[in-house]
């Protein structure tokens, strides 16, 4: 474990807590893409298959349980909670995430480090996570009103993977054999997808104005 990975995990945890706070306290999911939340639930479900078979550490197991529990409960809230579901803008959140899932599955079957069920699922979860934010970014472009919590959520979600990139550089420099192009490239693509959001978010924060994404 290194400081980059730990801060990356904490940033990721913060993003999930910010989202749960928004949904649980103000009972609203306005501006949040259910498609992205479903993709993240799929990411954790396919990445943490070995949660009970391969024990890494107490920290690792606890964090996996937290990410699984929070991602599925957010999907549940947005789909079934009688008040929260009313604030979900179904008409705007129309991204067909199946068009993201299928190519990721095909790519994971072709490009992976080992053709085993667990490894292909792990690789699939990496590819899906790389593109999972797309429905959310599309929704932000459409709905002009990006409230603070949503902006903070997306920012933290993007920042965690940027910190992971520093973690991979650190591990590459300090550990022999630590070379994993698939992880690195999908992590880089994921972070780059946030590039323009980061640009507008930091500018709006510096100029102390509301976050507006160009149409």
């Amino acid at each position: 474990m290194n400081i980059f990975r730990l801060s990356g995990d904490m940033t990721h945890l913060m993003s999930v807590i910010v989202l749960l706070l928004k949904i649980h306290t103000i009972k609203s999911c306005a501006g949040i893409s259910l498609k992205t939340q479903e993709l993240y639930a799929l990411v954790f479900a396919t990445r943490y298959l070995d949660i009970f078979t391969d024990f890494v550490s107490v920290y690792n197991t606890i964090m996996k349980l937290i990410f699984l529990a929070t991602s599925f409960s957010i999907v549940w809230y947005m789909r079934h909670h009688k008040i929260v579901r009313r604030s979900y803008d179904k008409e705007q959140d129309t991204f067909r995430h199946l068009f993201l899932i299928l190519p990721c599955l095909i790519l994971a079957l072709v490009v992976n480090e080992k053709f085993t069920f667990k490894e292909v699922m792990w690789t699939f979860s990496l590819y899906v996570e790389a593109v999972a934010i797309l429905p959310q970014l599309v929704l932000l472009q459409r709905t002009k009103n990006i409230d603070n919590l949503t902006g903070q959520y997306v920012f933290l979600l993007g920042a965690y993977r940027a910190l992971y990139i520093l973690n991979w550089i650190y591990r590459y420099l300090t550990e022999k054999h630590f070379v994993h192009w698939i992880t690195w490239i999908s992590g880089l693509v994921q972070t780059l997808l946030y590039a323009d959001f980061f640009y507008y978010y930091i500018n709006s924060w510096k100029n102390n104005v509301r976050l507006q994404l160009p149409a």
């Binding site: 990975r5 890494v56 550490s57 480090e113 080992k114 591990r171 054999h177 994993h180 992880t183």
Partner: peptide, 10 residues
Amino acid sequence: DIMDDYHDEL
């Protein structure tokens, strides 16, 4: 083994 060293990440 080597393959699993990065499966220690979340």
